[in-house]
Structure formats: C-alpha cells, structure tokens
Write a protein that binds this DNA or RNA. Structure first.
Length: 867
RNA sequence: GCGAGAGUGGCGGAAUUGGCAGACGCACUAGACUUAGGAUCUAGCGGGUAUCCCGUGGGGGUUCGAGUCCCCCCUCUCGCACCA
C-alpha cells in the first residue's frame, strides 16, 4: 500500500467498479422498504458548477447511507433539457439547440461520473427527447379535456425592433437583450393551466408538508394568498348595470366615498363615453397602460387617477359617489374595481387627499376618537364601527360577517374568497420546448391533436435569427396540417410549452423511464412515490415546487396516481459563496489579477486604487468569484471536493468558499490514508471486533472503545435526524485524532490491535457516504473483499458507551468551580457529599450557609449559598 | 410596509431537552525533523489589570442555572410587495 494518498487512481478504479457491477441499479422489491431520493435535475448549461457539486454531494450522502441501512434506494439523474440558453446559443453562434444540448449533456454527464455519484444511470432521461415530451403533450390534452387547459389573451414582452417576443430573462433594464430597444407589452392569445382550480387544496395541503422547511411553506402560502372578504355591487347611476368590487373590509363600506377601477377594466372607457371626461379618460388609460409594468408597481409610485364622469350608488348609504380610474388598481386581482374608503385604507387616503374627495371615519379605535379633518394617515386597524346604520357599535370583525350575510339577503353581493395565485401561462413563443398539441382549423376552430398522432415532434429545420415571430412558424411543413376532425386545411399551434411543465412530473417518469404506454407505469409509481427526500435550491421554493404539487394533484384526479403530494421531505440547500474583489472604477477582479499583497493591501492593476475587498457573494461569472469544480477535482480529487462542501457548513446554510478549507479537507483524508498505510500489516492480521466481549479491558482501551461507539451514535444521529453532515464529519475527525494518538500504545495491550482495527474500520464505514472512493479503497486495504457499497451501516452497543467513572461538574451559585470524579453507580447523596467536601468548592463556599443543592443526574451539581 | 430567518473567537462553524460556551476545521504563534518547507509532527491559541474577573448584537426579566425561554430595542439576509 502506497504511503501517499493518490486520489485519481483510486477514484477511477472505484468508479469503474461501480459501473461494471451496476451497484446503484434500482429494482422494485416489495420485500424491502423503498427510499426515493431525488436532487433537482440540472439544466445542461455546459459545465457543472459548485452549486451542483454541493447539491449532489448532499444527495449522495443520503443515498449511500440509506442503502447501507437496508433501504431499496432509487436515486436517478436526468436533464431539464429544454430552455432558452440553447436557443440563444443558436442565435448567437449558429449551433443548433439540439446539438448544443446533447453536447452539454455528454460533457456534464462525464463530469458527474467523475464525482462518483451513486446514480442509477439506466433511468437517465432528458426532457428534450420526443419519448419524454410526448407525455407533456398527452398530459396537456388530458388537462384540456377537463377544462384545465384553456386559451385567453394575455400580454407578453415585445421588442418592436426585432419584432419578437422576449422572455423575462431577455429583458435587461427594460430593454431588449440584443438591441436595447425599449420593450413594449403586447396582447397575444396564450394557453393557460387552471392551477387556480387547485388553489384551495394547494393551500390546505401545506399543513401536511411537515417535512418541508417552514420558510418554503410560508412562501407558498403567501404566493397562493387567500383573502376572505365580500363582493359588493355598486349600481351605476343613469344606466344599466353595477360595478362589482371585492373587499376584505366590508365593515368599512359606510365610509366608501368613491369607487376606483383599473384602467384595464372593461367598463373603464365605456362609462366615460359621452361625458366631458371622455377625452381625459382615454388619455389616462393610454398613458398608464404604456408604463412599463415592471416599473408600474415599483417603489410606491405616485397615486394617480382620473374622474370618469360616471357615478354609482353606495347601496348602504344610498349616496351617489363618483367613479374614478386609478393607476394602482390591478385588473388581475379581485374584480379590477375597489370601493375606496379613504379613512381606512392608505392608498385611498392618499388618492382622496390628492383629488379632494370626501373622507369619512366609520371605524374608531378602542382608545381615542378620529376626526376625518385631522387624519394624518388612514386608520387601518380593527375597531368599533360608527356612523354605519344598524351596524354601528359592532366590532369590525363581527361587522364584516354581519355585512356579508346582509349582502346576500339583499342581493347586493355575497361573501367571497379570492386568491393572489393566477393561472399558469404556459405558452412560449420559442423553438426549444414542447410543441403544444393543438391545431387551428378554419371550420372546426381549436382542435386537439389526437392521442394517436403524438408526439408532435419539433422539426429540426428552423431558422434561428432572434427576429420575427416564433421560429416554428417559419417552418411551413410543420405549420401546415390537415385538420384531424374534418381533414380540411389547418395550421398547427406554433408556441411551445414553458419548461416548468417538463419538470412538473419528471420525478414520476423516473419510476419507469421507458414506459411507452403512459407517462409512467402506475404500479411503479405506486411503489416508489412519493419522493422521500427532495433536495435543491431555495430559488425553486415557489414556482417549480408549486407546479409539481399542482401536477401531482391533477394526475391524481386523472386516476394515474394515488398520492396527492409529490415530495414528503424537502431540503433546500444554501448557495455557494466566495469573497469578491472590486475596484470602484474597473469593476470585479480576480484575486490573481490584483497588485499588492495581503499586508500592504490589494490594489487594482489598472488604476492602482485600493480594491474593495468584498462582500461574500454567490459564485457567479460576472463577479469573478467562481471556482470550477473540474479544476478542484483535478487538483485534489472528487472525495476532497465532496468532503469540503459537506464539512464547511450545514446543507441548508450558505457555504463560504475557502481554498484553505479545501486544503484542510485534503489533509484530513491524507492523514487517514497514512494512518491505515502505516499500520496496515498489524491491522490486517488482527482478529476480533469493536465489541470485544468476554475479556477485561484496561481503561485506555475501554475509553477508546467508548469513543468508537459514541462516534457511531453521533454520526448516525447527525445524518438521520438533521442532515448535519458537518458535525458528523467533525465527530469522525475526532475519532481519527484519538485513534492516531493512542494506537501505538493500545496495540501493545491484549485486544488492542483488534480494537484499533475496529476503530479504523468504523471510520472508513462512517466516512463512506461522504467520501466513497477513499473509504472503499481503505476498506479493501483492511482486508475486505466485499465492497462497502454492499456493506451495512455500523451499529453501536449501548453497553460500550457506559463509563466506569463519571466526571461531574460542580458549580457554586451557577459558576463552574470544580470537577469531581465518582463511580458510575454513585447515588445523589454520595455525589452531593463529594461535591461539598471538594477542597476547591469549600474555598468558594467558605463559611456561608448552603441554601440548596441542585443536581442534574450524572452531569452536574450546583451548590447555592447565600451571597 | 408585511412575512420568514439569522446575529457566538481573527474566520467557517459546534453546543439533541435550559446544565462545562467556543467541538471540528481554517488562520496564526512557538518548537521538532529538515539542504529547504507552502510537507509532516509536537505544543499554544476568546478577552483582561490572571489563584480571579469579563464574555454568545444591546437592554430588561424568569430561573439554583440562560447562547438556548419571555418582553423591548438594534443590525443583517431572504421572500412578497399598491393584492383592496
């Protein structure tokens, strides 16, 4: 055995072995408990980055650990392969998106393999394969049948110069990413999934997600945004119809002194027609709609509006009140119309002040009395209703219910629940995505592509100019089609699906990736689902995770699966960050580019100015603080890369990169290697185990044995209960430290060699999930023919944890003053006497009377004396 | 503004339930071995006026005992943000 730890040869050897043996192949087996572990699949951007390394290292620990614990583990990997960057590469560099994507997948797959991850590669999938996306289309058709997919007009980002739709990512500072032309909004007919039908269940089931971080649950709850309130009809004066408003404060309705509409409200222009206000209303609508919607909501923009010339009636006061348009009213929420109560809503208050509209106080706080004339800001809290007819005197909360009931009675409105959640727009005017399986026929209208004609495949021959409409529209042979219904001339839908559709059910596909009769085989899904542990970045807290939950429920209602939630436990790992350097004038700098030194301070190579030694930020190319995993693996090996990312911080926290920290991880592995190499002969020839029953052991060996068992207990606990891999690794480091310093002496004692060998084996076993290559190699060096991937997790023996003597801390008035050593079976009385007679303790007590003695069994005695 | 989370040595971070604050690692210091050391090993390493005292963002409280529980305040991070 070589004295030096040489990672590359070891890692290659074991990776080859695992591949040849298909060690991580998952096969359904009803006799064993299953464990489905999944990391969020990557977008094939070209190369893996540190975030991937961290994500997959965390997952691999769990996969290998669970396997050792006897679970039938499913741990698959695939590619979220559709998306914009592929198309951008085509536009910028003339590479076909498909070639670009396939090349990236091949490269990244090789990179992942070099990390030694325990995947079942036979289940690999890529969402850009027709075998995969045909099922996107199939699911789309099923949703369409049930009215869960529908078409409506909606606005998109539009570059007037390139004459193309832009994705949000392609809008940079309000301009087109290519030509910087200001981006406009344009209305297009687009497809939507009716996720709002599931709003209530998506919200209610959050309660069941006890294995999810509270933060993610809260974010989803806010995103769904349920509001309980009422709809109230305000009849228009002098014409038919009424304005329907939504409010959560029906208790303030007697204070509604005007009504505000969104500029997009269907009646906005209509009610102004023929009034002197018509021209002003027209102009206001135009001006407001033109304003960049990304800007419109920004930094509490000035409240603005215009009188429509129309009036309506507040049904509760029978008063005639004016109707305004207001720039802050949103068409997408509620009804696009609000009753304005200036005294009790800050926006209405500002608006009323600006346009000289009446302010009427109808809720008074418990203490004090508000005057409309002296109000400095709206009073938005609950209180007691005043000037509110028969409701006067009621507390606001009760008033809300009473008024809602009253509304229904009178036919003036009804109780209502509203959600912030909007339907999911899935149409993308892009090439590199799943074609939407719809045909438009002049005679038959919208015709779904029949199931037997799936998949609608992407044609390869398409121009990528970045200009003009959807690229697919340019391919005549794709667009022109016979209507499936009447056989007449028809055109295909040329939009593709949002890539979030692809990732909303891929975890189901992994259960039977070759299924060609259905998106997945129901019995396989039944065996593997739900995902027991899902791991990924917090950036997907809302969209991906909400869409996946929605799909799971929708597929359940189609009768395809049973479970209503896809992910039983969720771990959101933190970001990988690193220190940055920046010159005020010349921007971000690489550490290697800097002039100067640590001692004198770093300077900019361009201007000689002192560099702002920066904040620790998420690794990104633009900030010049990335570390390429490939370089890291080449320099230290995959095990070191894995160990460092796992040791530097607990998984859910951000990880700060440190080159010295990497060195430290490598040093630890080298030390472990050397320990085994230097003692190999003695260890391999030893017999016995870490239990060593039936022979009396000297205290030194008992202590060592205790630590071995204690370490097993701690590491097991840290992995199992908390995923705190950093402390698990720390515990193993401590064990190696203890073993190294006591090995020489211990091995001279009877039973010592067996114990040291057992200790070394324990370390190797415990480290296997973290650093599988070196652990496997050392396991073999210790004389095991069977690989660790088939071995079981070590167990500790409670008996071995017992100590002959207890070290007890003695406090006087809560401060540690001494320690005493007592036999393990000592009673409380003996311990108290020992503590009281300890000379150091006596020195602190002096002659003061002891008022009380508190004991924590086996750990601590606190003697309370008079001060 | 609303919601969530976090403030512990020079740094990353430990401290399952209220019970020895600072595990483990990094950096640093001294020494050993060395032609050499950015290898390895040994020892030290919160602060101070050092047999003792102080110390977990600040201030109060509960308790025999508080990093941990309660109240008030400060700072930072993240999410949402005119949602009626």
């Amino acid at each position: 055995m070589n004295e030096r730890y040489q990672a590359p040869a070891i890692e290659e050897k074991w990776q080859r072995r695992w591949e040849a043996d298909a060690s991580f192949r998952a096969v359904e087996d009803p006799k064993r408990p299953k464990y489905y572990l999944l990391e969020m699949f990557p977008y094939p951007s070209g190369r893996i980055h540190m975030g991937h390394v961290r994500n997959y290292s965390i997952g691999d620990v769990v996969a290998r650990y669970k396997k050792m614990r006897g679970y039938n583990v499913l741990h698959p990997m695939g590619w979220d392969a559709f998306g914009l960057p592929a198309e951008n590469a085509a536009i910028e560099r003339g590479i076909h998106p498909e070639s670009w994507t396939r090349e990236n997948i091949a490269y990244m797959k090789a990179q992942l393999k070099r990390m030694g991850l325990a995947y079942d590669w036979t289940r690999e999938l890529a969402t850009c394969e027709p075998e995969y996306y045909r099922w996107n289309q199939w699911i789309f058709l099923k949703l369409y049948e049930r009215g869960l997919a529908y078409k409506k007009s909606s606005s998109v980002n539009w570059c007037p110069s390139c004459e193309t739709v832009l994705a949000n990512e392609q809008v940079v500072d309000g301009g087109c990413w290519r030509c910087e032309t200001p981006v406009l909004q344009k209305e297009l007919e687009q497809w939507f999934f009716r996720i709002t039908s599931y709003a209530e269940e998506l919200l209610a089931d959050l309660e069941r997600l006890t294995g999810w971080p509270e933060k993610v649950v809260t974010m989803q709850r806010n995103w769904i945004g349920r509001s309980v309130g009422a709809e109230i009809l305000f009849p228009l004066v002098g014409r038919e119809g009424a304005l329907r408003v939504f409010t959560t404060r029906a208790d303030t309705v007697f204070g509604a002194t005007f009504v505000s509409l969104a500029v997009e409200h269907p009646l906005a222009l209509e009610i102004a027609r023929g009034t002197p206000q018509e021209q002003a209303v027209r102009e206001f609508i135009e001006r407001t709609r033109k304003a960049n919607p990304l800007r419109r909501g920004e930094d509490e923009a000035e409240k603005e509006g215009v009188f429509t010339g129309a009036w309506c009636t507040n049904p509760f006061t029978a008063e005639r009140i004016p109707v305004y348009l207001a720039n802050f009213v949103l068409m997408e929420y509620g009804t696009g119309a609000v009753m304005a109560v200036p005294a009790h809503d800050q926006r209405d208050f500002e608006f009323a002040r600006k346009y000289g509209l009446p302010i009427r106080v109808v809720v008074q706080p418990q203490d004090g009395t508000l005057e409309a004339s002296t109000l400095a800001a709206a009073y938005v809290e609950d209180g007691t209703m005043v000037d509110s007819g028969v409701f006067t005197g009621l507390p606001s909360a009760l008033g809300r219910d009473k008024i809602a009931a009253f509304l229904e009675e009178k036919g003036w409105g009804k109780a209502a629940v509203r959600y912030r959640l909007r339907d999911w727009g899935i149409s993308r005017q892009r090439y590199w995505g799943t074609p939407i399986p719809i045909v438009y026929c002049d005679g038959c209208g919208i015709v779904p592509v029949p199931e037997r004609d799936l998949p609608v495949t992407l044609p390869r021959d398409v121009p990528f100019t970045g200009k003009g409409g959807s690229p697919l529209a340019e391919n005549e042979s794709f667009v022109k089609v016979a209507c499936p219904k009447c056989g007449g001339k028809a055109r295909r839908e040329t939009d593709t699906m949002d890539t979030f559709v692809d990732s909303s059910w891929y975890f189901l596909r992994f259960t039977s990736p070759a299924s060609d009769a259905a998106p997945f085989a129901p019995e396989k899904a039944r065996y593997w689902m739900p995902v027991d542990q899902y791991i990924g970045g917090i950036e997907h807290a809302v969209l991906h995770l909400l869409y996946a939950r929605f799909f799971t429920k929708a597929l359940r209602d189609l009768g395809l699966i049973e479970a209503g939630e896809p992910f039983a436990n969720l771990l959101t790992q933190g970001m990988v960050c690193k220190e940055t350097y920046r010159c005020a004038e010349h921007g971000w700098l690489l550490p290697a580019e800097l002039d100067g030194s640590e001692r004198e301070g770093w300077r900019c190579p361009e201007c000689g100015r002192a560099v702002v030694r920066g904040r620790v930020e998420k690794m990104s190319k633009s900030k010049k603080n990335i570390v390429d995993p490939e370089d890291l693996i080449a320099a230290y090996g995959a095990d070191t890369a894995r160990l460092f990312t796992l040791f530097a911080a607990p998984p859910e926290k951000d990880l700060e990169w440190s080159d010295q920290g990497v060195e430290g991880a490598y040093r630890f592995l080298s030390r472990l290697w050397r320990f085994v190499a230097q003692n190999q002969e003695a260890l391999v020839s030893a017999t016995g185990d870490i239990v060593l029953e039936g022979q009396p052991l000297p205290e030194e060996l008992r202590a060592l044995r205790r630590q071995i068992h204690r370490t097993i207990k701690r590491v097991t606990n840290d992995i199992e209960e908390r995923f705190h891999f950093n402390t698990a690794i720390a515990a193993v480091m401590e064990l190696l430290n203890a073993l190294s310093s006591s090995a020489a002496a211990a091995m001279k004692m009877p039973g010592g060699r067996a114990l040291v060998k057992g200790g070394a084996e324990t370390i190797v076993q415990l480290l296997y999930p973290f650093v599988p290559h070196i652990a496997s190699e050392l396991w073999e060096c210790l004389g095991h023919a069977e690989g660790l991937e088939a071995a079981s997790w070590p167990t500790y023996l409670s008996r071995a944890l017992e100590e002959a003597e207890l070290n007890i801390v003695v406090q006087v008035n809560g401060k540690v003053r001494s320690r005493i050593s007592v036999p393990a079976d000592a009673g409380a009385e003996l311990i108290e006497n020992e503590a009281l007679s300890d000379p150091r303790v006596r020195g602190f007590i002096r002659s003061r009377p002891v008022r009380r003695v508190v004991q924590v069994p086996r750990r601590l005695v606190n003697i309370v004396v008079e001060e």
